[in-house]
Design a protein around this nucleic acid. Sequence first.
DNA 1: TCGCTATGCTTAACCGGAAAAGTTCACTCC
DNA 2: GGAGTGAACTTTTCCGGTTAAGCATAGCGA
Lengths: 339, 339
Amino acid sequence: MKRPTIADVARRAGVSKGAVSYALNGQPGVSDATRQRILAIAQEIGFNPNSAARALSGASANAVGLALCRPARILGIEPFFMELISGVEAELSARSYALTLQVVASPEAEIAVYRRWWGERRVDGVLVCDLRVDDRRVPVLEELRLPAVVIGGPGHSGGLDHVWSDEAVALTEVLEYLVALGHRQIARVGGLPGLLHTEIRTETFGTVCRRLGLDRTVTVSSDYSGEEGARATRRLLSSADRPTAIVYDNDVMAIAGLSVAQEMGLGVPSDVSIVAWDDSPLCQLVHPSLTALHRDIPAYGAHAAGRLLAAIAGQPLGDFQDETAHLIPRGSTAPPRQP
Amino acid sequence: MKRPTIADVARRAGVSKGAVSYALNGQPGVSDATRQRILAIAQEIGFNPNSAARALSGASANAVGLALCRPARILGIEPFFMELISGVEAELSARSYALTLQVVASPEAEIAVYRRWWGERRVDGVLVCDLRVDDRRVPVLEELRLPAVVIGGPGHSGGLDHVWSDEAVALTEVLEYLVALGHRQIARVGGLPGLLHTEIRTETFGTVCRRLGLDRTVTVSSDYSGEEGARATRRLLSSADRPTAIVYDNDVMAIAGLSVAQEMGLGVPSDVSIVAWDDSPLCQLVHPSLTALHRDIPAYGAHAAGRLLAAIAGQPLGDFQDETAHLIPRGSTAPPRQP
DNA sequence: TCGCTATGCTTAACCGGAAAAGTTCACTCC
DNA sequence: GGAGTGAACTTTTCCGGTTAAGCATAGCGA
């Protein structure tokens, strides 16, 4: 089956290719009557402009790129990325932009992908996840002048636009809540060290605990996987002065932690309270359901995508602070058992 | 920053654009010495061929499409798709193909996306998920002659290549295992009706139960979400003759079911055994860990992608039966308590 | 009546590659 | 020595759009 081209439309309408192009793109230069006729014919023969030809003459590929640097195992289990992608997609497809996805093995590979995409003009811009402290991807994107929106922050995104949410405030809410319940020994199982939001949380955790007068607080690093979350929890709960509450950097680790606690014969929340960061439906499926920090991740993705499209259109909007995650107390938190 | 084009390489090498094209594409027509020189220069100035220009002259967009028709909520929570995408990606990026992703709201929208992609020449082929009985997408793809690989089957994929895994054998293994443990009342919480694999499972469930002499068996339809899984479980477990074992069509519903059982004060596996289809790491994070049907989903995706690339290259390979899911018994199954 | 402008269209150049067709030249061979 | 050949390039055309520039025609004011 032959794909209809602009020439086919032009022939049937008895006008030139140029006229068709003007008509379809809403440009002036054709009468209203002709425009209507051309639109009808294009519709009738199912004409869609060849994206390559368009990209070649205009400058726009009508696509944005997203490179994810996580092992398959973790990508699958963490709802975060898929929800983010859903949100990004919703915004993009409303403006008929395509999303080009690539899973990479390392930050270096990710940089190579950006360079290739830029050279190939395959995408008009990119969304950058997992912002790191002094991220090496940032200067490369700036050098390439590839429009980009960083998802994460604040700071460390150089001159790139970014969309972020206040991790410090959210964590503070959690800690104040736990302290209000009576907890004094609070531990945290953190995400991948080096990621900016992990570092922000770690620093905030220290600061707020000191401010609240908690002395025996500890952060253990992990990698977001259930296995690591379980291992960290096992270590924490076997220690001499075990914490009465644990805050996890994602929901998967929190669920693993819950399971470990129950396995060790500890009651949740009676012996140990659990709080999860990121509130996927999973948190409500386990028993007891998990107290979690909730935010609208698809909306977060949609905002980032919207900003990226604006940046591509040449309107640098500056940074955008998205909704702060808020605590949803559920069954996994309670006052600690009196000693 | 100006993107280097083939003309820049040609100028620096002191040859024509044509020579550069031959050299970079491994075509005959240039001497080895010149080829090396051109390659070195291309490397040095970081030349990447403009994908649009390439797509416009050749016929290949060097991209494949994947349209997903599920609400964001479910896409996020089900590890299946993200794992599948990881596998697809691994295969594609090894052959430097891009993956274009689109989330759609309905099968009609999905068909529209295929038509658009085809018209825009945006992709060279597509992967089709969630095969339905008498799927309307199949004739459209055949009519468009858009290379496609259907993930799912067997059958109902018309003349399109497909990659499938034997659901019937897997389910039979589960049922025989449960019967061997002594279960006689087995229920199943099924996935979305209309999806081919759901229908195959439903039919197999009926057939095998009859063959094994089980009389009181029941299948409840659901939508893969935890909420629905919980509701279905609640109904099953409150019924007069409640089942002693429940098989769930995915892991999320199984986890929800486990939670409901525990909430109702029933012991798992003492009062009710639970088996999950799809064995994401989640199954090992809950307590007791779930007996599950395991298969390598990234590999499944990689196989499909590989077949699609072959189909695009013009080698129709015919159907491919992937590994059958196999049962991994864990803590959620045991002989039923004696009445 | 003659310009002048605005409208509505056509023409043609261009984007950056791929590849067919054409050119040059060294070399072979009768 | 002249035709024939093949290697190594160059030139040209093409893909299918966008868009600047060109060109009739109509309308209008002086």
